[in-house]
Design a protein around this nucleic acid. Sequence first.
DNA 1: TGGGACATGTAAACCGTTACATGATTGA
DNA 2: TCAATCATGTAACGGTTTACATGTCCCA
Lengths: 189, 189
Amino acid sequence: MYIYIYYPVVMLKYILLGFLSRRPRTGYELKSVMEQTTMHFWHAYHSQIYTTLRKLEEDGLVVSELEDGDDKLNRRRYELTDAGRADLKQWLDTPMSEMDHVKEGLLVRVFFSDGRDRQAVIDELSFQRQLHQHTLDEYRQIERHLPEGEAAQVREIAFSASTLRFGIAYEQLYLRWLDETMATIQQLG
Amino acid sequence: MYIYIYYPVVMLKYILLGFLSRRPRTGYELKSVMEQTTMHFWHAYHSQIYTTLRKLEEDGLVVSELEDGDDKLNRRRYELTDAGRADLKQWLDTPMSEMDHVKEGLLVRVFFSDGRDRQAVIDELSFQRQLHQHTLDEYRQIERHLPEGEAAQVREIAFSASTLRFGIAYEQLYLRWLDETMATIQQLG
DNA sequence: TGGGACATGTAAACCGTTACATGATTGA
DNA sequence: TCAATCATGTAACGGTTTACATGTCCCA
């Protein structure tokens, strides 16, 4: 007989703990830094970030206090507790043994696009091309300014630059694939 | 004043309708065909497939009946209704105007891996390399047998081959990135 | 004075994962 | 007879998305 202990693997939890392990931040700051640094491998809406932070506080992994600045803005700043630091360390020390499932809705559409008007498919891919080109440009912009950004330490920069190279390579692959696929459809006669 | 109508975009729904638009199938067959053809851009557990099929039947988009074969296996075969065909067509005719968010848990881990033991990180990436190499080999296997497989029509083959090339290119990119990242970490001193 | 960025939240619905559950068929 | 594959389902939980909701600050 086994006693099964279920550990849900909550990436957002560890993203938040990870950033808070570097310095205390508000929910808004966490949202902003995610938009600049993790958006190419993990995205979260502000609603989820705020509720997750509250839950982490309930669980004793972070503590928060309302800032009293000059203004009346309701800034709640979170910082990591020892328990939070230990939880993060334990998670990092447990290697991942599975692969994530890719979920690309556009490919679902392409897969079933036999029977669609050829030009309609090409127009759709062409629009997606614009989106991906724009995203790639953004990533390159971020790459140029990496050393000035959030990650002030050499090692932090090295690891975040690695993930950013993944994002750039991914967008380049996506653009190549879109061009290739549009050409294929064009030739389909 | 706007009247907001919420259309959840349920990829699995349209994958099932899409396959059923080609021929009637059982839940088990849908699960199998997804494992061979959509796993590189969309994955679903059998539990979700079976419950979604029931829901689609409730909504009148598919109908099912229990097969009475020689054996006692409880095969329930689904087929598309006119309403299901219309729903699928409407979805295909509405181009996607956003990008999906990439979710790659391994990159979350790498991002926060400054401070971890270098060799531990490399071991983790090396294990992931095995998984991705294995996946790439599988995709290439499938590519070799494409014309004999599920998609019997020229156009179907063309579109499914396109998505498969995406999957292959993605795994190649992943392997390159893993090698590059392991080398970077090695040199980190 | 108005728009955009700053700032934080709740509620509802839905999607996805894991576990639990059961049983038949086929071939080694 | 045992394991693998075929075959179908439910329940619970938790992660994710969308919508609703409110208010401040700063600059043009």
